[in-house]
Nucleic acid binder design. Structure first.
Lengths: 208, 208
DNA sequence: TAGATTGTTAATCGATTAACAATC
DNA sequence: TAGATTGTTAATCGATTAACAATC
């Protein structure tokens, strides 16, 4: 079946919402309740889930533990994804140092940089290596994901190196479109800021 | 006219593409050439631009300087946006320290944190203030944008504080849906990673 | 002029939503 | 049973794309 791309991101949001409900001690919920919390339509949640199966009970709702398990499987979070960060600048180190990422199923096991002066330093338990060691490291440690936080001039080259090394997906923080044949997700701060300013301006126009 | 939301983000990407072409010394381009670089369809570029006017010459293409100016106006980048970062953790400091952001029209003039031990320290030229000073600072310095990089537990409260202080838009890095009435853009690393893992799994399924 | 490329229309494709039968 | 909520159909809405007249 064809699944809308936006539906996947929402699934990840539902997952987080359910995790939170669980923390609050709840054990069941409904599409209505989740929709209220997330500011979306209840039928969208039901529709998104329906692409993958029937997870609720009519007249009753969803069991939170059960739905969490199902989403975990759908999103591929049953095992930890071995991940590296390429580019050990401030942003790369901040990402590698972010504890929450491990809870979400991603284990950042190393950083890579062109600057030999950074090599050997540590961020949490992950050591900084020279970029030349990337391919060997990826193969030896079965790394699946590379997070790219290099300057834009180095983005394409680093992405190609990651692909060649055998990484299966790239999360790209650098402000440039990269061209590889493995899946890429872009996190583009400058683009998001500009989208925001556009909205601010439009809004002001409408107010008057 | 109704403008597709995705079109705005693409406009920001076109802007960056043109900036790069200019750096390369080019002075004119075509929708075809941009499309090739960005991996999208030429007619999509023309369509996106057409929501705002006619910026090219038939048979000739686009003047890069001219189109840059037009996009600058559309995206609201003619003046610098005074911006603060709320949450001076590793991520907040990395964002505040990122030089490229100023070139793009955003001036990060201060950071705010609940931790009084951080107060007074500097990131580039921006000082860290206590969160209690946010409202006064925003009003006094005409701050338009807040970048939220606080732990998820603090996200909603910080967003409300920013709104109350008079900020007009929020770039939210915290992994929680926030509920305010001003525009919000979400940059959600965990969600992007999960969208990536879903794609990796699907892709493997298809290969066989 | 001949070739190229825009701007725009109309068709297609994809995503969201309303509504409701099924059923707990 | 009566009330609630799911799962799904069908309608609507929104975004993308192909195609081509306009025109440089």
């Amino acid at each position: 079946m064809k699944i809308p791309k936006p539906a996947i991101k929402r699934l990840a949001v539902y997952y987080r919402c359910l995790q939170r409900m669980k923390e609050e001690g709840k054990d069941k919920t409904s599409s209505k309740e989740m929709a209220q919390r997330l500011g979306i339509k209840a039928c969208q949640i039901r529709k998104d889930l329906s692409y993958f199966g029937e997870f609720g009970k009519r007249g009753v709702g969803y069991n939170i533990d059960n739905l969490l398990e199902k989403l975990k499987a759908i999103l591929g979070l049953e095992s930890v994804w071995r991940t590296v960060v390429i580019g050990a600048g401030n942003l790369g180190k901040a990402i590698a140092g972010y504890k929450g990422i491990k809870e979400q199923g991603f284990d950042i096991i190393a950083l890579f940089d062109v600057d030999r002066r950074k090599v050997g330093k540590k961020v949490n338990n992950a050591k900084i290596h020279h970029i030349d060691e990337l391919e060997e490291f990826v193969k030896k440690n079965d790394v699946k994901i590379a997070i790219l936080s290099v300057p834009k001039e180095a983005a394409q080259q680093a992405a190609e190196a990651a692909e060649k090394a055998g990484v299966e997906g790239i999360l790209n923080f650098s402000p440039r479109v990269i061209n590889v044949s493995i899946p890429v997700e872009n996190v583009d701060i400058a683009v998001s800021l500009k989208s925001l300013t556009f909205q601010i301006i439009r809004r002001k126009g409408k107010e008057k």
